[in-house]
């Protein structure tokens, strides 16, 4: 394996997933495994079903057919908040932050599932409630340090530039301490330096926290550099799956990207 990393057992296994919206078949019998500690890149031309696949894993879409096994538990469908409780976090293609809240509050929302004190304690903000809040603040500050966004802590995210918003969104996902992190085009619309920063963060997250990562990305340079494995979707089908070099040489993948005459 790349980087000499040993990849573990499958953390998540999707089997024969089929999803359609009316007559449009977004996914047709896709099977995909995500192994512990790996960085899996999902690539494919526009409309190939990449985001649909993430949405199925995340519980946004409920597939008509197929099952998903996560941490040994098999399911057909669940709600996004249940996926979150099981340890799946994600970011969106177009940033989905809470625009009216500060960077700090946005990342603090990632800790909500871990905060347990009830309404009365919260209203008093005293004793256990205060200790809980401060403990989580400390955890969040570690993420803020890690992502190097100390300076924008108290700024409402609606006022931040796009690249920083993407970083805050990653921070919010990290605050959940997920086992599986889904990133939908984390580098879309970024310049080269921002992309380099983001790549570094993704690799560090994978390396330091051991988080399993599945990401969708269009920048092939980035994909080939950082991923351990690449899965290629085209017209809702998986056409290739393997190490980056093998996928790059795959004839079906070349055909999908460059087009081929079906004559």
């Amino acid at each position: 394996m790349q980087n000499g990393k040993t990849l573990g057992e499958p953390l998540l296994e999707a089997r024969e997933i089929s999803l359609s919206f009316g007559g449009v078949k977004a996914l047709r019998g896709v099977s995909l495994a995500i192994r512990r500690h790996e960085i899996l890149a999902i690539i494919g031309p526009n409309g190939a079903g990449k985001t649909s696949m993430l949405n199925v894993v995340n519980g946004f879409y409920h597939p008509q057919q197929g099952t998903i096994t996560f941490k040994g538990e098999t399911r057909r469908a669940m709600r996004p908040h249940q996926a979150a409780a099981q340890g799946i976090a994600r970011t969106f293609q177009n940033v989905a932050l809470f625009k009216g809240m500060t960077t700090l509050d946005n990342i603090m929302t990632g800790r909500l599932l871990r905060m347990k004190r009830g309404l009365l304690w919260q209203a008093l903000y005293w004793g256990p409630a205060e200790r809980e809040e401060l403990a989580h603040r400390e955890a969040v500050e570690k993420i803020i340090d890690f992502l190097e966004i100390q300076a924008i802590r108290k700024i409402p995210v609606g006022r931040l530039p796009y690249g920083l918003q993407k970083r805050v969104e990653l921070g919010r996902a990290l605050a959940m301490e997920p086992e599986l992190l889904l990133l939908d085009e984390p580098m879309a619309g970024m310049n080269v330096e921002e992309k380099e920063d983001m790549c570094r963060f993704i690799l560090d997250v994978n390396d330091e926290f051991g988080t399993t990562i599945a990401l969708i990305e269009h920048d092939m340079g980035v994909v080939m550099d950082i991923s351990d494995r690449v899965a290629v979707l085209d017209y809702g089908r998986k056409i290739a799956d393997g190490p980056p070099d093998a996928v790059r040489a795959d004839q079906a993948v070349i055909d999908a990207y460059l087009g081929v005459s079906h004559g």
């Binding site: 989905a96 809470f98 009216g100 603090m108 929302t109 905060m115 919260q122 409630a129």
Partner: peptide, 24 residues
């Protein structure tokens, strides 16, 4: 300013994103 306020504001600002971080 605590947990409840944040989950309310999250629902206000973007309910889909609120759901993926585990807010019901």
């Amino acid at each position: 300013r605590g947990r409840f306020g944040r989950s309310w504001m999250a629902i206000r600002d973007m309910d889909i994103a609120a759901e993926i971080i585990g807010i019901r």
